[in-house]
Design a protein around this nucleic acid. Sequence first.
DNA 1: TGTGACGTTGACAACGTTTGCACACGTCCT
DNA 2: AGGACGTGTGCAAACGTTGTCAACGTCACA
Lengths: 378, 378
Amino acid sequence: MSHELFRRSAADGDRPGERQRVTLADVAEAAGVSTSTASRALHGGAGVSEPLSERVRGAASALGYHVNVSARSLRRGRDQAIGLAVEDFTIPFFGRIVARVERGAHLRGHAVIITVAGSGRSEAESVEPLLSRGVAGIVVTSGTAGAPEGYLADVAERLPVVQVDAVGPSSFSDSIGIDNAAAGRRLTEHLLSYGHREILFLGSGTAASTVVLREKGYAEKMVEIGLVPRSEWLGYDPSQAFDAAVVALEAHPDVTAVVSGVARTTTGLLSALGTLDRRDVAVVAMDDIAGADGFDPPLTVVEQDVEAMGDRAVELLFERIDGAAGPPRHEEVGLRLIPRGSGERGPAHAPTTEGGPARTRHPPAGSPPGDDPATTPA
Amino acid sequence: MSHELFRRSAADGDRPGERQRVTLADVAEAAGVSTSTASRALHGGAGVSEPLSERVRGAASALGYHVNVSARSLRRGRDQAIGLAVEDFTIPFFGRIVARVERGAHLRGHAVIITVAGSGRSEAESVEPLLSRGVAGIVVTSGTAGAPEGYLADVAERLPVVQVDAVGPSSFSDSIGIDNAAAGRRLTEHLLSYGHREILFLGSGTAASTVVLREKGYAEKMVEIGLVPRSEWLGYDPSQAFDAAVVALEAHPDVTAVVSGVARTTTGLLSALGTLDRRDVAVVAMDDIAGADGFDPPLTVVEQDVEAMGDRAVELLFERIDGAAGPPRHEEVGLRLIPRGSGERGPAHAPTTEGGPARTRHPPAGSPPGDDPATTPA
DNA sequence: TGTGACGTTGACAACGTTTGCACACGTCCT
DNA sequence: AGGACGTGTGCAAACGTTGTCAACGTCACA
């Protein structure tokens, strides 16, 4: 349509390259109505007769009118945008969240302003730009949310906030995630059902609440059946996970199975297993990762419904934006175990210290009893 | 800190949960100055005496004042935000771009508003929300940029635009990417240097300009030395890449090496090779992918410096925002071949139809002559 | 000591939009 | 036939900020 042509002949204003903006007054004048009527016709909904409304809309599209969001936000006191605070955009998990949040906001006519939370930035520094813009609400997905400054809790008093994935120590806002302890238990039980007893848990570090809870689920399950839980932390840098995993595995030469409690260290762990020539160790991992079925053997994972999490986060947020009252809500999405091979192998060698009975190397095809691949939401 | 306390006693305004906003007038009143002086003291820079300036800053921080960006943008006619249009946030490559663009914008005091370009949304629909907000500039990273509507070209006439990764058919704006044809050539040469002659190129589809150029580089190199180029397109959906790769590979049973021209189909291809029991086929892939060294054998790739691309995109954009004139600039970042094993194997079986001499299965350790692992920027 | 220059400050008018209010119409009821 | 009422429209006042302009006092210089 190249609607700018209409204005192109106007004297080029202040700075070069800057075109005149088409304002509501221009539209109103072209349609022969007042700005109030034009505004109501375009955005106000009812209260304008059909012929006039149509004339206004025609003029608007002919002139190439865009509403000036700054003016609207100023007038309304609230911006039609939401904030999205993410810990690290390079992590695929968060990318999936971003995609769904953007989609949900777009469908509701809201823009999305991104910011980085954590990763060395203070909460204040992350959230300030959002507050200055008067965003209608904020979706936060960061392991460090709400701690230790408590700044986010303050924000949540004035503005709808939804926490995704990791939930702060005290829940001051709506939140959605998974039952991380259940996930840890689930991963562990899967390995137990194939006869493993010497199982090692590997996580990134104790700063991420989700991983800590998964480790807790693992440890509880182990203790519950009289086994000794063992955990090692590989750190947050994926590129160093390999080295850390080598060290951790060498410290536990007798383990026959490993729980990878977080996606970012899983590939490093797999490389380490290959390098140490311990391909016989069974592996189950939290979160599906790209190329999981390209590994040898394909990787067994417990997957969370990330898309559902993102979608629901937006829904929760907009319910609050639309005025829903009530105490903070916490929801959880379902988990799904995807057996691909790496987790469906028995212990290759019996534990060296204990004299337990030898076990078959491979269970019969199919899932062993008591392990249901599909889980319902909590 | 909890600066909201100052205002908490004020009668809770209109809607529950909505606090009074601290305005510049409040700060000015508290400091005993006019709003003009307060504005200058806080944001204007020079022109205010030191004692007054300090008093104003004190009052502002005591009251917990945040500038109202909507009002500022309205007044200034331009928002201190940039737009970031991305094709798909779930693709790791784009995630890395997002992270760097956000970082660069943040350092310069600008917010980032995201939007999805392509993936079924029209360019207008993608960009409109950005224009309405009067963003200072836009970074676009989408294979469909500028085509076929040409809407983006219109936008670029009024606003600084930088295209990242994929460059539109006609370059109407600054852009940064890589030399895709050179990348295709590079991948091909690497396989040729190990003795392969029956080399297949696999890409996603002909809609992405980058992949088309890589295929062009591949094909040119093949023709150049008297070989027949063969290409197959696997489609854009990574989850269907496996099936498509199986079909493609079965259609070319004699190939001894494969060039994977795009990251999104690489893991599907690897799975297909494993399933078809053609693990002897050499593979080199475009773009490093997570867990590349966890595969068996570890994956040889040509990597692009994505972080540098993102950083440079922001620099280019802000140079324009700050008023730099001149014709569109196109820049390219460097490539780096990372040999990990999958691409350093010779052809296992000589071509069935041709009677070429048998070749050694493995070349001597180290890179073969003529293949320099490090490349300088184009 | 008068005058111009300068540095500092305040009053005021925008920026473009939304919205409460008033008003001019018709129409319908009593 | 006269008043009440609803519908459609315009007027004008905000929203919070920045930049222009003039006014003010102070100082240096003639």
